[in-house]
Write a protein that binds this DNA or RNA. Structure first.
Length: 296
DNA sequence: CTCCAGGTGAGTC
DNA sequence: GACTCACATGGA
């Protein structure tokens, strides 16, 4: 057992990080630890005193994956001062934006459209069980490479519950196999060039592209705007609607230099809120939603 | 039963 | 650019 983050005291909440809807490839074990695959690298981790404990796996790979070098103090200092952002910060303290393998992240988010987090995970596990490559000790096979997935067919993916997303995932896997786009080489491009390139792939619109930018390319200012974040932005604007472009600009200004981080805290907070912050709850004149009055 | 979910792409103005 | 609509699936 290795206490990785002891030296630099890197704060982390493993549970918030792994359950925040940025990754779908970890399973909780009865003893409180988590087992998962990073590509085909098997790892088991747990948490002690808000520090990462590596029970199994390569520390170098895991350090990088869990982004223990992200300057959380600096990121927290840059959080907006409104009460909703500050509440999310308190409730999700230690949540880190991962550095995920590009393809896995891209593939899972192509399947994410109009699906709940639990469904996305279910589809991913179905794909892994069906056409993934087995890894000894792992509860599920590794996610198939794009070359491997490209050799599959639409019928198989439909049987994994993908519905209309099957065609998009298959086409994207085939484009990558043909070499039309090199996911690794794209790392060197500017954020906007990278976003444009990703959006040429079937099933990748601006929201999925921003997820991949944030979760796999370390563009910490990228803000995916899904239905939850859309609702929150509206509340921050006192209900004032806007075009997608206007809301994106607003989010960037309002959430600051680490807008992607703030967004993930807001997203996780909203989804795990015991009060079940449904659309109606956010729009209501409930005095608890006092953040609607605050300004950064 | 209806409603919703980490949206996208095609058609249209 | 922005708006409208269809698109499969499964849980609440």
């Amino acid at each position: 057992m290795i206490l990785v983050s002891e030296k630099n005291s890197a704060l982390i909440s493993v549970e918030a990080t792994l359950k925040s809807g940025q990754v779908f490839h970890w399973d909780p074990l009865p003893d409180g630890s988590w087992i998962g695959l990073i590509s085909d690298h098997l790892a088991r981790v747990s948490e002690k005193n808000q520090r990462l404990v590596i029970d199994q796996g390569d520390p170098e790979i895991l350090n990088r994956y869990f982004a223990l070098d992200h300057p959380l103090e600096q990121i927290y200092a840059a959080f907006p001062k409104d009460s909703l952002s500050q509440e999310a910060l308190t409730l999700c303290n230690g949540l880190r934006i991962l550095r995920q393998p590009r393809w896995e992240c891209l593939a899972t988010f192509i399947t994410s459209s109009m699906k709940q987090v639990a469904h996305i995970r279910a589809m991913s596990i179905a794909i892994r069980n069906r056409i993934g490559t087995p890894v000894p000790g792992s509860p599920h096979p590794a996610y198939p490479s794009f070359e491997r997935l490209a050799r599959s067919d639409e019928k198989t993916l439909l049987e994994c519950g993908l519905g209309y997303r099957a065609e998009n995932l298959l086409k994207t896997a085939r484009l990558l196999t043909e070499g039309s786009i090199d996911l690794e080489a794209l790392q060197k491009r500017s954020t906007s060039e990278l976003r444009t390139a990703l959006m040429t792939l079937p099933g990748v619109g601006v929201k999925v592209a921003n997820c991949v930018l944030l979760f796999a390319y370390e563009r910490l200012d990228a803000v995916p705007i899904d239905v939850w974040i859309h609702r929150i932005l509206l509340a921050m604007r006192n209900g004032r609607e806007g075009t997608p472009t206007q809301l994106a600009n607003y989010a960037r200004r309002r959430l600051g230099p680490y807008a992607g981080y703030v967004q993930q805290y807001l997203f996780h907070r909203a989804r795990t809120d015991k009060k079940k912050a449904r659309p109606s709850a956010l729009k209501s004149a409930d005095p608890k939603n006092s953040y609607t009055q605050s300004r950064a």
